[in-house]
Write a protein that binds this DNA or RNA. Sequence first.
DNA 1: GTGAAAGCGCTAACAG
DNA 2: CTGTTAGCGCTTTCAC
Lengths: 335, 335
Amino acid sequence: MVNPTINDVARIANTSKSTVSRFLNGYTVKKETEEALKLAIQSLNYHPNVNARRLVKNHTQSIGIVVDDIANNFYSGIYRGIENVANLNGYQCTYYSRTSNYQGEFGFMDLAQERQVDGLILISFLKRSNELIKRIEELMTPVVLIGDTNSNDTIFSVDVDNELGISEVVRYLHRLGHEKIGYITGPDEFSATHWRRKGYEGALEDLGIKQNPSWIIASDWSESGGHKAMKELLDMNEITAVIASNDEMAIGALLCANELGYRVPSDISVVGFDDIPVAKWVYPPLTSVKQPFVEMGEKAAIGLIEKLNGEEIGTQSNRVLIKPNLVVRQSCRGL
Amino acid sequence: MVNPTINDVARIANTSKSTVSRFLNGYTVKKETEEALKLAIQSLNYHPNVNARRLVKNHTQSIGIVVDDIANNFYSGIYRGIENVANLNGYQCTYYSRTSNYQGEFGFMDLAQERQVDGLILISFLKRSNELIKRIEELMTPVVLIGDTNSNDTIFSVDVDNELGISEVVRYLHRLGHEKIGYITGPDEFSATHWRRKGYEGALEDLGIKQNPSWIIASDWSESGGHKAMKELLDMNEITAVIASNDEMAIGALLCANELGYRVPSDISVVGFDDIPVAKWVYPPLTSVKQPFVEMGEKAAIGLIEKLNGEEIGTQSNRVLIKPNLVVRQSCRGL
DNA sequence: GTGAAAGCGCTAACAG
DNA sequence: CTGTTAGCGCTTTCAC
């Protein structure tokens, strides 16, 4: 009825619980007690109580991954990256969804303080408050961030190099002969919005292209938002290309252009960001910027594990920005 | 340096640890000790050690959700459903990805036996082995299944009614005048493949439409697989409509038809299954069958929690099949 | 190699 | 309402 304990197996195997414990932890025991032990464990269907073990060891061998919304599939590649290196290092990954917690990422600080996990990876592409950052700094438990961080990089964090990504798009379009490039930007509360826009404006400036503020339309990441923004842009009748700061908006833009009788790319070029799977299925297949999710997850996990091992994080800085890749398909043409 | 314990707060608040424990657990204490306690907790930044608590209480107030691959975003709606009801009932959700464990769902039985969680929801759309089912039956810990189960329904499980879903598609197409309907089926190792196909064949039979086995092409859920299958179907030059058993294949079919100079829906009608977000963005917008993911998650969580509370699962059977919804868009036309 | 004993941080009688 | 006490199941000295 009640679960078997280490005492039960000790009794059955005719030995002491310390011996059972040692055996369970990989220390050598006399050949014959080993046999008896195996038999006892097997027959009792014994499984160690992980809570007892964690209590005495004071660590869990598990890392917690906290996401804004587990049902948002967007950054799933990150998970894979994290699992890869965590498992390689003997850590179990457990995922927590922030949706269920009204306190946002704050609520999950407790996970660490309550000793549910040894360390935390916080994934969010929303801007993070100074208050949150301060709380994390005060924490004894190692935490690494994916996405936004504070400006002075006191906490180890990784992100995609959004600025570079968009700036490469601008350069690409410029090489194709475009100079009149519209930009559909995302919501303010995301840090990526800021950096991507910076990439757009910075590249135009570097290239010596004159900018037109009315060619920047703010939107909301959604397909319908992109659609609406594109209409505004097209109505101006000035632009030869548009960069949407994510793929969904780019797809909306594509759809809008179609409906309005424009052909992509012959009448107007469109590029997106993220390279979601759909990007290659739409018509025309969308040129986009591929986010290096797996690598981001790996880097974050490596950073966390180094902290858990008490190692100084190598030569690298506290902020690692990973270069995304431009994926050229058929939604742009040379002028 | 070391984490504060209940003893530390007792000492500082000048009381005993039992009182601290009671306070922490919501029992009333004298007003003034309450004040002292709050102060002590605050100043020490005390957080209870959840492992100690779990050890003595012998339960965790958390349920484990095990998925094939956390990076597979497909069933994310299910998570939302589960979180909804779990949180309402005071349970924390923790997610585990099977990918990291070579033993498949088996490995996660341990989660329960090790007392890491109070109950488990296993999500997988692959067929499950009898061996797995037997292991689950023997387990003391409550487990509920989403997806496949065994035929005699000894374990509580929920799934979408795949058979009904496809059969409604067939009826819809039939109402439109189609009788020559091709079918692109999925891989055998998924239980949905079986039920959806059954829905296709059953509906044809019910409708008295003669079947043609060569109109059924096996594929692999992928867009490129759907593309290839569609080519075979189109080459026969006999069919007026095709049902793909998921949206990705349907999109491949759409793309293929386009390339081959067929127009959808005027030359050929296409319908998918799942209603993934993309379905409405492709051209023409794809008619599909919407999976009731949130509801599936909710039903599963309700079932689990009833078991955790030791309640008999009400009047309902051990197998709950949720009706999906046909979403009509523009990829089919009447003959 | 192995057993006895102490203790991880907490809860839950029990007696006051 | 509160303190004392005895564990929860495990690991880890310390002797032997």
